[in-house]
Write a protein that binds this DNA or RNA. Structure first.
Length: 583
RNA sequence: GCGCCUGUAGCUCAGCUGGAUAGAGCAUCGGAUUUCUAAUCCGAUGGUCGCAGGUUCGAGUCCUGCCAGGCGCGCCA
C-alpha cells in the first residue's frame, strides 16, 4: 500500500533525528488531502515533530522532503506547503498500475482478504414477533446487511442472524389479543387484554381466520415452514376449535397461529427489502435445549449470581451496571435478560470469533449488564460488540408519528417500500451515520423519490452501459484495460475519476472496520459525479481509436466500481434507466 | 435526578478519527443539449459548525461547564 511505503521511507529518514530512541511510537500520518492542489498524499510529521526537535516546522519539512528518496515511477514529486506539510504527487504510471490492480481484483483488498477469514456473526433487526416490521427495522436491515457484505468483502466469514423472541410473555399477550379480536367479531363478549396489541393487523388476521378451515390452515403452515422455520407451525384444528378450548389452551393456540403469520410477514418483508438471514434463531430453542439452565449454572459456578427475595440475581454492579439484575423471577420463570445471556453464550459456543449486535437506542441501558454477563461467563472482553442504531422519527404533515407497536400506529416497512421503493429507502438510510437521530420526512421522501441521489448513481451506471452498448454496435472493442492504452488518458476529468476509483479498497476497509456502511453511499455518489463530469467533458467514442479505447477502459473500471459499491449497499445497478415517472 | 445519543446552509444530512479556503442533495435564481440516454453538466445565492471556556502550531472534530431535543433508568420485552 502506497501510504505504508511513504510512511516507511519517512520513518527511515527520521531515525537520524533520534526520535525513536526512547521507544516512543510516533504515528506518521499519510493521508489524501482534501484539496487537489495539495497533491495525492500528504503528511504532517514535520508539524507534529517540530516542537520535540525544537525546529521550525517548515524548515524541518524542507529538510525531510529533500532527504526522501522515492522511485520516480511511483512518487513523482515531493513538495512542502502551508505551515509545514509535505505533499506527494503520484506518478501516472503508478496510478495506472492501481487502476489495473482494481480491475484484476489484486492489490490492497486482496492482501487484506488473505489475512482475514475469521467467522463473525452479525445480528440485526431481531424485532419482536408481535407485529409487522416497521421502518426502524428497515434502517437496521439496511445497515446490517451492508455490514455483512462489507465484512465478507474484506475477507471475513460473516454470518447474518435474526433472533426471534418467541418464548416470552409478549407472545402470550399477542395470542390473547388475537383471541379477543376473534371473539369480538364472533359477537361474543370479550375484554381486550390490558397492554394488548391494538394494531389493525390483528383484526384483519381474526377476520381472515374465520374463513379458514383446517385444510387451509394446514396449507398455510405448509407453505411457511422450511428448514429455517421448523419450530413454527399452526395448531391443530380451526379457530372455532381453539375458541372452545379452555382459556389457557385457547390462548396458546391463537398465539401459535399469530406467531406463524407474523413471522411469515416478517420474513416476506425482509425478502422484499432484499434481506436474507443465514439463521433465524428461536428463543424457544434455548428453553427446550436447557441452555437457559446451563447459562445460569455457568454463572453460578463463577459466583456471579445470588438469591434475594426469592429471585435469582446477576451481580451486574460488579461489572459497572447501576443495579443488580434479576435472572429468575420469584415465580421461577426466567427473564428476557437471562434468555439473552444464554443466547449469546450459545452464539459464542457455536464458534464465532466475534459477534456484532445492532441494538435500538431503547436498549442502550442494557449494554453494561450484557457485557458484564459475557465476562462473567468467561467470554473474552470485546467478543460481543454492540452497535446502537438510533431511532428513526417519521414526520408526516409536519408532525412526528408514534411508532409504538402496541398502539398500532407505526409506519410499516411494507408501506415504506410502497411509498419510495426499497432501493431509495436503503440509500436514504445509508446516507446517514448510524448514531444520527434520523428525521424521515415521508412527504419529502415521496416528493424526492424521483430526484433522489440514488438515481444519480444508478444513472451513471446505466450511462456507462449505454456507451459500451453503443461502442459494441459500432464494432469498437475496448479490449482489456492495459497500461499502454490507459496511458493515453491525459485530461483532468479523466484523472479526477481515475483517482477516485482507486480509493475503492480503502473505502471498503474503512466502512467495514469502523462499522460505517454509510461511507459507501457518499463515495459512490462522488464516483458517479466524477463520471458524469468526465462524460460531459470528454467524448468517449471519438475519432482517435487509441483514445477511444483508453476511455472505454476507464468506463469499464468505473462501472466495476459503481456496481461493486451498489452491490454492497444492496441496490440494483441497472443496465438502463426506465422513463422517469411523473408522480 | 442519573446515563446514552444528537445539535453544521431555509429543510434533510455528510465531513474519511485533530489539518491547509467547512461540503452535498432539496429549495431559489441564471446558463449549457439538433448528444456517447438531460434522472446530466456549469454557475449564483445561502454558515458566529447550539453557547462559553480550555488543550494544541492548528478544533466542526478532543476536554470541561451550560442550553435545547430524543431515548433509557421494571421480578416488561
Amino acid at each position: 500500500m502506497i501510504e505504508g511505503h511513504i510512511r516507511e521511507e519517512i520513518r527511515r529518514r527520521l531515525e537520524s533525528y533520534g526520535i525513536f530512541e526512547d521507544e516512543s511510537e510516533i504515528e506518521i500520518q499519510v493521508e489524501k488531502p482534501r484539496e487537489r492542489d495539495h497533491g495525492d498524499l500528504s503528511t504532517n510529521v514535520a508539524l507534529v515533530l517540530a516542537k520535540q526537535l525544537e525546529r521550525k516546522p517548515r524548515e524541518l519539512a524542507g529538510e525531510l522532503a529533500a532527504s526522501l528518496d522515492f522511485d520516480r515511477d511511483v512518487v513523482e514529486s515531493v513538495e512542502i506547503a502551508g505551515p509545514g506539510f509535505i505533499n506527494f504527487r503520484l506518478a501516472r504510471a503508478f496510478q495506472i498500475q492501481r487502476l489495473l490492480d482494481l480491475w484484476h481484483g489484486r492489490g490492497e483488498l486482496a492482501d487484506i482478504r488473505a489475512e482475514a477469514g475469521r467467522r463473525i456473526n452479525v445480528e440485526y433487526i431481531s424485532a419482536n414477533p408481535t407485529g409487522p416490521l416497521n421502518v426502524v427495522s428497515a434502517r437496521a436491515g439496511a445497515f446490517g446487511s451492508a455490514l455483512v457484505r462489507l465484512l465478507d468483502a474484506i475477507g471475513y466469514d460473516a454470518h447474518s442472524e435474526y433472533y426471534v423472541n418467541d418464548a416470552g410473555r409478549q407472545v402470550r399477550l399477542l395470542g390473547a389479543s388475537l383471541r379477543a379480536r376473534y371473539l369480538q367479531i364472533s359477537g361474543e363478549e370479550a375484554t381486550f387484554p390490558e397492554d394488548g396489541y391494538k394494531g389493525a393487523y390483528l383484526e384483519q388476521m381474526a377476520v381472515e381466520l374465520r374463513g379458514l378451515d383446517n385444510a387451509a390452515i394446514r396449507a398455510a403452515a405448509e407453505a411457511f415452514s422450511d428448514e429455517s422455520f421448523q419450530r413454527v407451525s399452526a395448531p391443530e384444528g380451526t379457530a372455532e376449535d381453539w375458541r372452545r378450548a379452555p382459556e389457557e389452551e385457547s390462548v396458546r393456540c391463537f398465539s401459535k397461529y399469530a406467531l406463524m403469520k407474523i413471522l411469515a410477514w416478517q420474513r416476506e418483508i425482509c425478502r422484499r427489502f432484499g434481506l436474507r438471514f443465514d439463521t433465524w434463531y428461536f428463543e424457544s430453542e434455548l428453553h427446550e435445549t436447557r441452555r437457559i439452565e446451563r447459562a445460569l449454572e455457568q454463572l453460578r459456578k463463577r459466583d456471579a449470581i445470588f438469591e434475594r427475595e426469592g429471585a435469582t440475581w446477576f451481580r451486574a454492579t460488579d461489572w459497572g451496571d447501576e443495579k443488580d439484575r434479576v435472572l429468575v423471577r420469584s415465580d421461577g420463570t426466567p427473564t428476557y435478560f437471562l434468555a439473552d445471556i444464554a443466547y449469546h453464550h450459545h452464539k459464542h459456543q457455536r464458534g464465532f470469533e466475534h459477534a456484532i449486535d445492532f441494538w435500538g437506542p431503547d436498549h442502550h441501558g442494557h449494554i453494561a449488564r450484557m457485557q458484564g454477563a459475557m465476562q462473567a461467563l468467561g467470554i473474552p472482553e470485546g467478543w460481543l460488540e454492540i452497535q446502537v442504531l438510533q431511532q428513526v422519527n417519521f414526520i408526516e404533515n409536519g408532525r412526528p408519528l408514534d411508532m409504538s407497536k402496541r398502539e398500532g400506529q407505526f409506519v410499516s416497512m411494507d408501506a415504506l417500500i410502497d411509498e419510495v421503493g426499497a432501493d431509495v429507502a436503503k440509500y436514504i438510510f445509508l446516507t446517514r451515520k448510524p448514531n444520527s437521530h434520523l428525521d424521515f420526512d415521508l412527504d419529502l421522501a415521496r416528493a424526492q423519490s424521483n430526484e433522489n441521489p440514488v438515481y444519480y448513481v444508478k444513472y451513471a451506471h446505466a450511462r456507462i452501459c449505454a456507451v459500451l452498448r453503443k461502442a459494441a454496435a459500432q464494432g469498437v472493442d475496448p479490449g482489456e484495460p492495459n497500461p499502454s492504452d490507459l496511458a493515453r488518458l491525459s485530461t483532468e476529468p479523466e484523472w479526477a475519476l481515475a483517482r477516485e476509483l482507486v480509493c475503492l479498497p480503502q473505502v471498503i476497509v474503512g466502512a467495514a472496520l469502523f462499522r460505517e456502511p454509510h461511507r459507501l453511499s457518499g463515495y459512490v455518489y462522488d464516483v458517479a459525479g466524477l463520471f458524469h463530469q468526465f462524460y460531459h467533458e470528454c467524448v468517449i467514442l471519438g475519432e482517435d481509436a487509441d483514445l477511444t479505447r483508453a476511455r472505454l477502459q476507464l468506463c469499464l473500471i468505473a462501472r466495476l466500481v459503481i456496481a461493486k459499491v451498489l452491490d454492497l449497499i444492496g441496490i440494483e445497478a441497472p443496465q438502463q434507466m426506465g422513463d422517469k415517472e411523473e408522480k
